[in-house]
Amino acid sequence: MIRGVRGATTILENSEKEIICKTEELLTNMIEANNIVAEDVAQVLISVTADITACFPAKALRNLEGWDYVPVMCTKEIAVPNSLPSCIRIMMTVNTEVAQKNIQHIYLHDAVSLRPDLAKTLSVDN
């Protein structure tokens, strides 16, 4: 079965170090919470708000051991008025036998406000 695993986080400053650090934190939490192995991942889509320009957050995926061949793409979010700024969102397409209702979607930092109903115990403070 193919499932989407969602996640989002926010950054405190538009710097390469911050973008990579927060993206890697989000990816690691998504992977661990859902027992994901790279071989089961079809693709990873990463979107950013318009204020994130210092680097491609996809670079963070390449820091993870064994994820060299997973296709990853970055894109820009739609600029909706009053939407959450400095936000990185991830949609990971995964082959899994886990029921859709049991997928653990991860929302960190200020991104918890996007889906408080899904941001269970893994939310972390800034």
Rank of each mutant, 00 (worst) to 15 (best):
T93C: 02
E39K: 00
E97I: 05
N34C: 00
I46D: 03
K101H: 10
P81H: 12
R115H: 15
N29E: 13
N63Q: 11
R115F: 13
A111P: 01
V112C: 06
V48R: 10
A54M: 04
D117G: 04
M91R: 13
A54F: 02
P81R: 14
A111D: 02
D40H: 10
N82P: 01
M92S: 04
R89A: 15
Q100D: 15
K120L: 08
I52F: 02
I78Y: 06
I88Y: 08
E77L: 06
N95Q: 12
V48T: 12
Q100H: 10
E97H: 12
S86K: 14
V72E: 12
L118P: 01
I90T: 08
A54Y: 03
A54V: 03
M73Y: 10
N95H: 10
N102H: 14
I103E: 00
D117M: 06
T93A: 11
K76Q: 15
T49S: 15
T96F: 06
M30L: 04
S83G: 10
L84Q: 05
N63Y: 05
A99W: 04
H105L: 01
S113G: 01
Q104S: 11
A33H: 02
Y69R: 11
N35S: 10
I90F: 08
D110F: 03
A99K: 15
Q100A: 12
Q104I: 10
N34A: 00
N82D: 15
E77H: 06
A60D: 02
M73F: 11
V98E: 09
E39L: 00
M92C: 09
T75M: 15
H109N: 13
G66P: 09
R62Q: 10
L118H: 09
E77M: 07
P116F: 06
T93M: 14
E97S: 10
S86F: 09
D110P: 00
A60M: 03
M91H: 15
E77G: 05
E65P: 08
A42T: 11
I103F: 01
V72L: 07
V98F: 00
D68K: 13
A50S: 14
A54R: 05
M91C: 09
N29H: 11
M73E: 14
V72N: 13
E32G: 04
T28I: 04
L118T: 05
N29Y: 10
N35D: 06
A33C: 05
A38H: 01
I52W: 01
T28V: 08
M30A: 02
S86M: 11
L84S: 08
V44K: 13
